[in-house]
Nucleic acid binder design. Structure first.
Lengths: 338, 338
DNA sequence: AAAGCTGATTTAAGCGATTAACTAACTTTG
DNA sequence: CAAAGTTAGTTAATCGCTTAAATCAGCTTT
């Protein structure tokens, strides 16, 4: 059926070791033999079996990408275009280097390790999860791991992230500079040491800097999806709080919120201003365009792959942390009051 | 380092065959031995190596998902949330059945085959590509393949799709029923036997049914991305054609077009009506909500996985084609003229 | 002319699993 | 009670590849 090394060897009239040497060039081979082998490879359409190779080489040229699955059965992470953009760039960069990616959504922490063992993964990229006690096991396993968007103090894990606090500081600052004083904060589930928590602190810092007291009732916590954005907008309006501006901790929330406000008869930015966070591709195509804090999403994926491959090539690499730049993008969702 | 079958066997004081039998239950094993083996597995945190297993079982529990890469270096397919939604449901369903998915964007047709051989894939799902001459090679390789959104007459390939022509027929019909007579059609690159071509014919059919002559200058061809939608809106306006409605062959195009119209000072739906196609998650959160033809995107992924696994289990399965339902979803982007 | 090099190729072991075939100790059963 | 069947376990081959070590022919050397 499928041609194997042995088939090629037979056709070329050499041993299979010779074929292997021709293919990976680790021995000198006479021009004549090389010719015959390559011709046989061509004739049989031979492609090496990477799993078999991996078995003897003890690698797999496979990197695992783990994305969070908040609840069992939950597929949202793929629908959040933030993830798909990161995934896209990871796939692209990995493929350039001869790696394939194996994507798995998962909740139980331990299953990363299981996956890694099952598939002999050369490395793992974990997107947006917080290291828990189970991570200890991963350390034992020695497998290179790069975290994206995780705040992890552990010296073992590499980290590619942005300065989340600074990002929402920028967003909030912008709103304040435009003259807004009553600003609400829409945020996903706040977890200790999580991205959302950091973004909240950035909001608080900006308020403090402008001498505005932080009031907890202006913080609306939901999930990172459109529906939650709509709902938070409703809750803000229902609260009767006199907010003129909203800082959303994610574009997805901001977009949902815009919809929520419109449905309640409020105009953006006329009645209420919104600043997002992420700069998803869609954000510039909304009406009004969403003013937001841009992070270079696909750069995140690229850097993660680079770092992971570097660690794979150099197993004693110590923890690296890279913090990517942010930038406020002004579009039409904020009204200047001054 | 990693525990292997042999390690477990040693610790349990049995042969490795016994461990294997305990683990996959293909032989009767005494309660006592089973106990000892399981305990050893637990102690060593043993997880079987699926690649090694695959080598002897001649399978891999891996299914490949191939998405189109229009141009080299192009990562758009991941940013198109249609793809990510399909991917998400494929991943989910596959994982339920103990399969992992290997995602690869690729242009060269032949490389699917290479991928399949390299990784010993148990099957392949191909999203949105047209079978070309290279597909002949795939047939020879005997690997189960399910196409999503492909019009392929070849009796070999399974197919999960929608009735694209009927979908845009629905969209157009709706516009016409609302009293629009001059309607433009925004479409991605039209290829013979491709999805976009079919959607065009649906548009034509609806016109014909309403006795409206089809005029080619009302068809605007671009690519499937937001920017292209914006551009097509611009081209329509520049053309001076008196269109009051637009049928977009994809929500992405419709969304871009809405933005384009707004920027040119036209209101949707007041000045111009738009109907989309796909019903992406974002579409309901726009303002106005996008009237569109809904296809059950994640059902597509699910059906594809089911069919693929069925074929894997039953290699002589003959070609199956499944056509999923469509439904017009009315929201706010169409104005009733009558 | 025997010994020593070289360079090209082969042999064979090993990677981590599965499994057909074999063995040994117990049960059946006619 | 001997022949046949069960049961529980082991041995060893195999999957497709890599690679250390062995082989071997052809060439210097001295």
């Amino acid at each position: 059926m499928r041609a194997t090394l042995k088939d090629v060897a037979q056709l070329a009239g050499v041993s299979s070791a010779t074929v292997s040497y021709v293919l990976n060039g680790k021995r000198s081979i006479s021009a004549d033999t090389r010719q015959r082998v390559l011709e046989a490879v061509r004739q049989l359409d031979y492609v090496p079996d990477l799993n078999a190779r991996g078995l003897s080489m003890r690698d797999s040229k496979l990197i695992g990408v783990v994305v969070p699955q908040t609840e069992p059965g939950d597929r949202l992470m793929f629908q959040n275009s933030f993830y798909s953009e990161v995934l896209g760039s990871i796939e692209f960069c990995a493929r350039q280097q001869g790696y394939h990616i194996l994507i798995s959504a998962t909740d139980a922490n331990e299953s990363y390790l299981t996956l890694a063992k099952q598939r002999n993964l050369d490395g793992i990229i974990v997107i947006g999860m917080y290291p828990s006690e189970f991570y200890q096991q991963m350390k034992k396993s020695q497998i290179p791991i790069v975290l994206i968007d995780s705040y992890c103090n552990d010296y073992y894990y590499h980290n590619i992230r942005i300065d989340d606090a600074y990002g929402s500081y920028l967003a909030t600052q912008h709103l304040l500079q435009c003259g807004h004083r009553d600003t609400a904060f829409f945020v996903g589930r706040i977890q200790e040491n999580g991205v959302m928590k950091k973004r909240l602190t950035g909001y608080q810092q900006a308020l403090a800097e402008f001498g505005i007291p932080y009031r907890e009732e202006y913080v609306f916590e939901g999930q990172i999806d459109y529906a939650s954005g709509v709902e938070l907008a409703g809750r803000l309006l229902a609260s009767g709080l006199p907010a003129t501006g909203v800082v959303a901790a994610a574009d997805i929330l901001a977009i949902g919120a815009m919809k929520g406000f419109y449905e309640a008869g409020r105009r953006v930015p006329d009645d209420i201003s919104i600043v997002g966070f992420d700069d998803l591709e869609i954000s510039q195509y909304l009406t009004p365009g969403l003013t937001t804090v841009r992070q270079q999403i696909s750069l995140k994926g690229q850097k993660a792959v680079e770092l992971l491959l570097k660690h794979i090539a150099q197993p004693d690499l110590t923890k690296q942390e890279e913090i990517l730049p942010l930038q406020l993008i002004e579009r039409g969702s904020v009204r200047r009051l001054v």
